[in-house]
């Protein structure tokens, strides 16, 4: 069983690292088709990465280690998260450490690293992007923590593996008001964390609206490749998290290899489905003004709080 556990961890990391750019490409392709364009193809992000990796590493004059380390830190934290999270199996050697709060903190670490890098460049855009990113992060973190709290109440633990295993045993739990509200709050928070419309537009290079792109404007070559890969992995991991909290069915709880394979396939399907939905929604949505982002996030905070409250006063026997 332990062997299968290690295989599961390895498979998760490989699937996330290898699949994240494909997911990004897939979402761009869906968008393109919906908008009536041919699109660049699903493999385009990988081709971008290959092209960037071949280039010479250049850093702006006057930048320090924060700038150079940030891409590595971003990719590394996300890879650790991918290894920790019970995306495919709840019984892995590291599942004991798969605490939701740890996962959130690791993701936040990546965000902070990137914001520091943005500040380190000393340019106007870097500072602006960092300040905006931190504003949004400051509003998102409480929401995520509250939503996590809400989903952990019925289980009595913030361990992700325990939460997901508990949900598999009580299939009605995600349909309870607390579960629905928490997932809705998490969905908004994921959009903000991953820098998607309506909070941030990943495709823009317009000064007034950039958030994430403003921070990474000075990156080039292999560093840029890492940053791109890192943000795609973040999106994949967050969508995977959302998918496994909302619909954990199929995640392997035992130690058999075929089940693990099935779980991996289901994981890919679920994430792709969520990605498709998100891409389709982005076609119809507009990015909200930066000043309205707090409104959106206050709403999701409220949803998370209601989820917590509801899981206290609406827990009938069926949910316990």
């Amino acid at each position: 069983m332990s062997g299968v556990g290690y295989v599961a961890v390895g498979a998760q990391v490989v699937v996330v690292v290898g699949g994240a750019p494909v997911l990004g490409g897939w979402m761009r392709q869906v968008r393109a088709r919906l908008e009536g364009r041919a699109g660049a193809g699903v493999g385009q992000p990988w081709r971008d990465v290959r092209k960037l990796l071949r280039k010479e590493a250049v850093t702006p004059v006057g930048t320090g280690p924060a700038f150079r380390l940030a891409p590595l830190l971003l990719v590394a934290t996300t890879a650790v998260v991918a290894a920790l999270m019970p995306l495919a199996s709840t019984r892995t050697p590291v599942s004991g450490s798969a605490d939701l709060i740890l996962v959130v903190a690791l993701l936040a670490l990546g965000t902070v690293a990137l914001a520091l890098a943005g500040l380190d460049t000393g340019t106007a855009f870097g500072g602006m992007g960092a300040s905006r990113e931190m504003t949004i992060a400051a509003l998102v973190e409480p929401t995520i923590l509250l939503a996590v709290f809400a989903v952990s109440i019925p289980v009595g633990s913030t361990n992700l593996a325990a939460i997901i295993a508990g949900t598999i045993h009580h299939p009605a739990r995600p349909a309870s008001p607390a579960g629905l509200l928490a997932v809705a709050a998490l969905a908004v928070a994921v959009l903000a964390e991953a820098g998607r419309i309506p909070v941030d537009n990943p495709a823009t290079h317009l000064e007034l609206t950039m958030v994430h792109e403003a921070m990474v404007l000075e990156y080039a070559g292999p560093d840029l490749a890492l940053v791109e890969l890192g943000s795609q992995m973040r999106l994949a991991v967050l969508l995977g998290l959302l998918g496994s909290l909302a619909a954990p069915w199929g995640t392997a709880t035992g130690g058999s290899l075929p089940l693990l394979g099935l779980a991996l396939v289901l994981l890919v399907v679920k994430t792709a489905l969520l990605g498709t939905l998100l891409a389709a929604a982005e076609v119809f949505w507009a990015k909200v003004r930066l000043f309205k982002v707090p409104e959106l996030l206050a709403g999701s905070f409220l949803l998370a709080l209601l989820a917590v409250v509801a899981s206290y006063f609406l827990t009938g026997e069926a949910v316990r």
């Binding site: 008001p177 607390a178 709403g299 949803l303 509801a310 026997e317 069926a318 949910v319």
Partner: peptide, 21 residues
């Protein structure tokens, strides 16, 4: 069943509160 009853009741209450929000 009592489980389904609780589930449906809670769901309706959740929608009620969500609408207010």
């Amino acid at each position: 069943t009592s489980g389904a009853y609780t589930q449906l009741l809670d769901l309706a209450c959740g929608v009620l509160l969500l609408c207010a929000v």
